[in-house]
Design a protein around this nucleic acid. Structure first.
Length: 176
DNA sequence: AAAGTGATCATG
DNA sequence: ATGATCACTTTG
């Protein structure tokens, strides 16, 4: 069941990242480039939650890079990984608590580094306000697809407890 | 299996 | 100032 396509609001981003991450599955990641808007459904996400989450970039507290994660939800957190790939995250939750949702896949582009390349998302969009932006935002048409939860990947440095959290979310039947 | 690649952060 | 690290992708 779907309805009109509405931009996510500030309230939508107030959810804790383990709640927001599956909620974002099936919503549209929207990017305007030179007047053209591309909309693609989000197919895979991961949650990173607080300084107590040893997989989270904010595990060692607030720094120049992680400061944006301490904002209230609705901002983009974009950082460079392995010197090559830009990662897109959606900051969630209340102010002063660092958490975010990593966008790991969209229709036609699986992998967090590939989707940012396809949508030309880089450092210039770090800190973008997704509630107000004309360049990057998320829309919801009411689609609530079935999904699976599994362990996050690429976090060998985290504690066993945090590695075992089922905070990776994939559309059912999407290979996850 | 392993390289490529550079910003970031802890350490000195 | 320096070096280790890294929420990945591609190639062999």
């Amino acid at each position: 069941m779907t309805g009109p396509c509405l931009r996510l609001t500030a309230d939508d981003y107030r959810s804790a990242s383990p709640v927001l991450a599956p909620r974002l599955l099936g919503t549209f990641l929207c990017r305007r480039i030179r007047g053209r808007v591309s909309r693609r459904r989000i197919t895979e996400t991961e949650a990173y939650y607080g300084e107590g989450d040893t997989a989270c970039h904010a595990r060692r507290g607030k720094t120049a890079r992680t400061g944006i994660m301490y904002q209230y939800g609705g901002f983009a957190y974009v950082y460079l990984c392995y010197g090559i790939h830009w990662m897109l995250n959606v900051v969630s939750g209340p102010a002063d608590f660092p958490e975010a949702v990593l966008i790991r896949g969209i229709e036609d582009f699986n992998g967090p580094g590939r989707l940012t390349k396809a949508l030309q998302i880089s450092k210039a969009l770090n800190g973008e306000n997704l509630v107000l932006s004309e360049r990057l935002w998320i829309e919801d048409d009411g689609c609530r697809p079935p999904y699976d939860a599994s362990k996050r990947i690429g976090i060998d440095y985290a504690s066993e407890e945090d590695k075992n959290r089922l905070w990776r979310f994939t559309l059912s039947g999407d290979g996850g």
